[in-house]
Design a protein around this nucleic acid. Structure first.
Lengths: 224, 224
DNA sequence: CGCAGGCTTGAGGTTCCTCAACGAGCGTGG
DNA sequence: CCACGCTCGTTGAGGAACCTCAAGCCTGCG
């Protein structure tokens, strides 16, 4: 498998698997441009041609859909090292915006494609990124399909603490509304559940964007 | 992009893009074994080693998770031509069962991997399968995160009518419980919503597994 | 210090779930 | 061939979880 290449290589070099994503940014750095985006600025819109592929260098990006009546659903948050915007079809199926001031590597799809012939490892990294995004999506479907509001918040906090690589202290880049639209809840429910987790002593909320995971094992047991 | 190869080739040969999946089965046919599974029989379990990759030849397969308290969520239904069971890690994150009597092509992961060097198109097909599974997951997250029970049923019926390639007449391989666990609902709600869609004249239900789409445009407008 | 945007809290309503009973379809066996 | 039982699906009544609407409160910033 593609993954096996990547795994062997990274084990061989003593690199942690989580660093693979950085490798993708490195492999592509020469092919594209680093573009800064302001908070809440659009990176691409739904139904626009998907001629470019994106890698987050710093900051955070949300990809989302909006239904005809205005309901919004955030499909994913993309953090440093994550690839987004790659489609099988000609157009984007989602829109993308910077959650906070972010730097994004923008690579022409055709350039990435032609590079595939020259760099044999690139194909593996590309597949690995796609597969990892899919795995996150699968885990998230379980959250959306079968978990309660409290469990969703716990799952979200644990996911973010892993991905932001912070042991107990989390600086969330996104607003309550973003969290709600990611978890399939309303902003009020998100707020209430966080308050409740704080009252129960599982987390601390010194400021609204800063979360401290006080009892990780209790949180994990709430995560089913 | 990988997709571009596949697209060019299939257009050049006058093959519909939806046939690409069959190409994957064809490419792998020599590498693995065709194994028949009975209705509801297990193909693999959660946390088992992911040493094999699977392609549905006929029938239907469900991949799912079960939470500690018994709640089940079906991540996806896999129909003829679909690949499943490919992981980035060493173990399966989901279990898989045959929904109905099915034939499945089972390929050793390592065999698939070594074949990648010999067959340059295989990498493209593999990426395309993964990306397509991911796209289905993204669409499904929107359903689970932001759609009402009625909209979920409509989305499900339209998805199945596309994937089963049937214009108006659907023979569903799965039970009401399967549908409920796929859509994040209960079996009772699924039943009620189908009954309501029938009363409204949007669908027909001659038998409970057979659905006729009576008013496709009305259904589409309910799909936001 | 005052404003604006985002966050929290409360009260009441809606959707969907839970629990329970009934019914339809189908294979088996008398 | 029909009765029987079993599984699966449907329907109803009541309840719980989450949403909606509304108000008030921080907090960061000019």
């Amino acid at each position: 498998m593609y993954r096996d290449i990547a795994l062997e290589r990274s084990v061989g070099l003593g690199i942690d698997v989580s660093d693979l994503s950085k490798t993708l940014g490195d492999s592509l750095a020469g092919l594209g441009a680093r573009i800064p985006y302001e908070r809440n600025s659009e990176i691409f819109g739904e139904d626009e041609p998907a001629d470019y592929v994106y890698v987050v260098l710093s900051g955070a990006v949300r990809t989302y859909n909006i239904l005809t009546d205005g309901r919004r659903h955030i499909e994913a948050f993309h953090l440093a090292g994550d690839m987004f915007g790659l489609e099988t079809g000609a157009d984007h199926r989602m829109a993308a915006e910077a959650v906070v001031k972010s730097n994004v590597l923008v690579v022409k799809r055709s350039a990435l494609f032609s590079q595939l012939g020259r760099d044999p490892e690139l194909g593996a990294e590309l597949w690995h990124q796609t597969a990892r995004n899919h795995e996150r999506a699968r885990a998230h479907m379980l959250v959306l399909g079968r978990k309660t509001a409290q469990e969703r918040l716990v799952a979200f906090l644990l996911e973010m603490s892993e991905r932001l690589a912070s042991k107990t202290s989390l600086d969330l880049p996104m607003s309550r509304q973003d969290i709600a639209d990611y978890l399939g809840l309303t902003i009020e429910t998100v707020s209430r559940m966080l308050t409740q987790l704080e009252r129960d002593g599982l987390i601390g909320l010194p400021t609204c964007r800063h979360v401290e995971l006080r009892d990780r094992s209790a949180l994990r047991s709430l995560n089913s």
